[in-house]
Structures are given as C-alpha cells and as structure tokens.
Design a protein around this nucleic acid. Structure first.
Length: 305
DNA sequence: GCGGGCACCTCAAATCTCCT
DNA sequence: AGGAGATTTGAGGTGCCCGC
C-alpha cells in the first residue's frame, strides 16, 4: 500500500467528515425537522378525531392502521412496533406500515393493550367518560409530537442518504454508457456482462449468497463488487467497514482474483477503518469525488478499447 | 483506572416465503 | 394472485472488557 495513496484517503476522510458536519446545520436539516413536526401534528390530530379522542379506538383503527403509530407513542413509555407486538400478540404491524384498516378483532385487542399501558397523565380524560379539555389536547400534542418527529426524521434521513448515494453511482455508470441488468442472483461471473451493471443483486459465495450494492462487469470476466456505505459517527464506522471486509473475504474465497471489491464511502469514518479496507485490498472511493471512480474504470480498460 | 475497540442491542424497511 | 408473517439488511446506540 503506497504511502501516497494512504495520505490521499486520509484527506478524503477529513473532507467527507467536513461535508457531513456542514450538512448538520444546513437549511435543509432545519426544514426537515420543522416539516416532521407539522406532519406529526396532523397525524396526532387525525388519530384523535378518528378515535373520538381515544374513546373509541376500534372505530379509528378500522378506518386506518396509521393511527397505531400514535397509540404506541402514547404508551408510558412509548414503544416500538416489535415491542408493542410483545404486549399484544394480535397487533397488526403490517396495517401500521401500509395504513390499511384493522379488523375488528385486532382493533379490540390493540385497544385493550393500549388502555392498560397508556400514559395516564397525557390521556387523563380517559379516566372518566368525558371529552378532553383543550388544555389536555395541547399537552398531549406537546408531549407526543416531538417523539414522532425525532423518530421520523432519523428514519427518513437514513433512507434518503443511502438511496442518494447509490443513485449517484447508477447515474454515473448510465452516463458513461453502461447498461443496467435486471437484478437477481449472480451465480456465475458471466452473469454480469461486460460494461453492464446490477443494482442490489445477490452474489454467490462458497456458502450463502451475499447482497452486493453494485456489481460491474469489467474486462476479462472480472466483476467489481461495490458496497455503498454511509456512516455518520466513528464508533459505527467500525461496523460498516467490518461488513464490507466480511463480504470481500467471502467473495475472494469463492472467486479469487476474478472479483475485485470496492467501497463507496460517505460521511464520518475513522481513518483507521479506511486503512483496514486498503489493507484488505478493497478499492476505496468517495461519494464527494466520483470522478476518481470514473478514472479507475478507464484504467481497468474501459472506454480505451 | 480508564479509554478504545468491539460485541450486542434496537428500529424500520424491504424482500422472501408460504399459505389460502 | 395476494396477503401475512418471517427473514434479511442496513443503520444508530450502549456498555463492558481488556490492555496499557
């Protein structure tokens, strides 16, 4: 491993971190957070309306499974989908995801689990038979809206970052005249045609196939297996890099030198982890400098012949 | 005794599989 | 065919163990 290359990647790791840090306080970040609040607020209001202020939960749930999210966050303490399933065996997780209406039986089961574990301060009016006061509604909104917002912004951000990272690579390859193949199982290297690529395919190893983010057909039936990784703190970059090294080893063992492995990195990554990739003979590229990936492809013999 | 590295935990979404 | 549950994947969070 050349010292020069190491230093190049040390600089790129610093640059990637700088880009992330700047994004943390961007106008977009602030807007996402505010937007999450107004979405969450509407969601809570809709759930209160549909359930007659939680006094007829089955009625609300039969209308839409989306209200389940609000019920979970009104537990004391709030709990995840999988945790709620422990309390209520009939909890219809799928209905919460899709928004479909819930069957009467499931809705009744959810209602009794909710009533047993609800936050008694935020839902005090349920102790009697009346409707909530406007103060009680305001308190409930103040308590529960931020919880939903935190959860939602984190989820949206995770998904968005990895989707954008992979989309950028797909766009670059397409621009350069590569053809996208339909994704499935790669059980032979000839499955990946020269100057073709697959997005999210399963790639065989000696044991069970491992998912590869991008597989590119290089000259000489060589396949480039690229993993796309976003990580935003140094603690976890350890794990993401371990994931890559594990797959790289599995493919290496099965295909030998006919598989080259690469990692496309973005965000906050400890340099020591980048170094481990280099030591493991994994090609390292950066989302903020895709031109170096472009040049690398040319070096491998494309576009020149 | 303490700090970095790592194993293990949690969440949510996507995909797979099996059943009706 | 389509739906429900199971499994896989990818991300962040936490705590503790071992070496210095």
């Amino acid at each position: 491993m050349s010292a020069l290359l190491r230093e190049y990647h040390r600089e790129q790791a610093a640059r990637a971190k700088q880009i992330y840090v700047e994004s943390m306080i961007s106008a977009q970040a602030g807007k996402d957070w505010r937007n999450a609040h107004s979405v969450a607020r509407r969601q809570v209001v809709a759930a209160l309306r549909a359930t007659d202020y939680l006094r007829d939960i089955p009625a609300g749930l039969s209308e839409s499974g989306l209200h389940l999210t609000i019920l979970r966050h009104l537990m004391a303490p709030p709990i995840s989908q999988d945790q709620f399933a422990l309390l209520c065996a009939d909890y219809p997780k799928r209905a919460e995801i899709t928004g479909r209406g819930v069957s009467v039986a499931a809705a009744t089961a959810v209602a009794s689990a909710f009533l047993a574990g609800r936050d008694r301060v935020l839902t005090r009016w349920l102790d009697g038979n009346g409707q909530p006061t406007s103060n009680q509604i305001r308190n409930l909104l103040r308590g529960v809206v931020p919880l939903l917002s935190v959860q939602n912004t984190a989820t949206v951000r995770r998904g968005r970052m990895s989707v954008e990272q992979e989309a950028a690579i797909v766009a670059l390859l397409t621009d350069r005249g590569w053809t996208r193949q339909s994704s499935g199982l790669i059980s032979s290297l000839t499955d990946v045609k020269p100057q073709h690529f697959l997005h999210k395919a399963r790639f065989a190893t000696k044991t069970r196939p491992q998912e590869v983010d991008i597989a590119c057909g290089l000259p000489g039936t060589v396949v480039l297996a690229m993993e796309c990784k976003v990580t935003n703190d140094e603690t976890n970059s350890v794990k993401r890099i371990n994931d890559v090294l594990k797959k790289a080893a599995a493919w290496q063992e099965h295909w030998g030198s006919f598989v080259r492995t690469a990692a496309l990195l973005q965000g906050v990554i400890a340099f020591k982890d980048v170094d481990r990739l280099l030591e493991g003979r994994v090609e390292v590229f950066w989302s903020h400098d895709l031109t170096s990936f472009d040049s690398w492809l040319v070096e491998q013999g494309w576009l020149t012949k």
